[in-house]
Amino acid sequence: MNNPRVIFNNNTTDAATRQQHPGINQPGIEITEDEMWVVNETAYSQKPQGITVHFYRPSDWEYWDTRIYFYEDNNILMEWPGALMNSQMYDNWLTYTIYGVDNPKVIFNDSKNKQIPGVLQPGHLVTQDVWYKNGSWTAYEPTD
């Protein structure tokens, strides 16, 4: 088959929780090369570079609903409360890799009323892989 098209979805028919890219009634993403990467709705011919953000979830935050929201200067890139972070089962570290944004500013939240940095504070600028734990940002995984 020459140049097939693909559609990604979360395998549910429930209209309230269904997610699909491209959207309903839109053509699929055309596959034009032997290997392609689709990240955040953008197709790449090779694995794109990304910035991985690691967040140590505070004990009073909702484990399954911890999110990362990011933007770049005055460019809003997503809707609040942001994207779910990925868990590493059985510990409190959550991760998310940001692709296609050079200087993202990040805010963590629990989708309810807790967030870091606080309300009306700017997001934290990240330019490389970072770890956040107990108020500290580091370029390496904290050992304590």
Rank of each mutant, 00 (worst) to 15 (best):
R5C: 07
W61D: 06
L84V: 03
S45G: 13
N103A: 14
E30V: 14
K47V: 11
I116N: 00
G82P: 08
Y44W: 07
I107R: 07
M89F: 09
A43D: 08
H54R: 10
E79W: 01
V106D: 07
G135N: 05
P58M: 04
R5V: 06
Y71I: 05
D65A: 13
S111T: 15
N92F: 10
A15W: 02
K133A: 13
V6I: 11
T32Q: 11
W131G: 05
G50W: 06
N113A: 12
G118M: 00
V6N: 03
N25Q: 04
W37A: 10
F8P: 01
A16N: 04
W131T: 05
V119G: 03
S136T: 12
I68A: 02
S87I: 00
A16D: 03
T95D: 12
S45E: 11
N92C: 09
T13P: 00
F8E: 05
Q115M: 15
S111N: 15
Q26F: 04
P142R: 06
Q49P: 00
Q115R: 15
P104D: 12
P142T: 06
A83H: 03
W61K: 10
P81K: 09
K133M: 12
Q26D: 07
R5E: 07
D102Y: 11
N9L: 05
N2C: 06
E41F: 05
M36D: 00
Q49V: 14
T12Y: 01
I116L: 08
F108E: 00
I76V: 15
E30M: 12
P4S: 02
R5G: 05
A15C: 01
A43R: 14
V106S: 10
Y69D: 11
W61F: 09
P142I: 06
R67M: 07
E72L: 08
D91Q: 12
M89A: 09
N9Q: 02
Y63G: 01
K133V: 01
P4M: 00
P27Q: 09
N9V: 05
Y132W: 15
K47D: 12
K105L: 14
H124R: 10
W37P: 10
D102H: 14
K105F: 10
T138N: 09
G123T: 12
P58W: 02
Y90H: 14
F70R: 01
W131S: 08
P122N: 08
Q20L: 09
I31M: 15
N86T: 00
T17L: 06
P4E: 06
D144H: 02
Q88Y: 02
T138H: 04
P81F: 10
G118K: 00
F55Q: 11
G123I: 07
W37H: 13
P27I: 03
D65T: 15
T42Y: 14
D73V: 13
T138P: 09
Q128Y: 04
F70T: 07
A15T: 03
N9P: 04
Y96A: 01
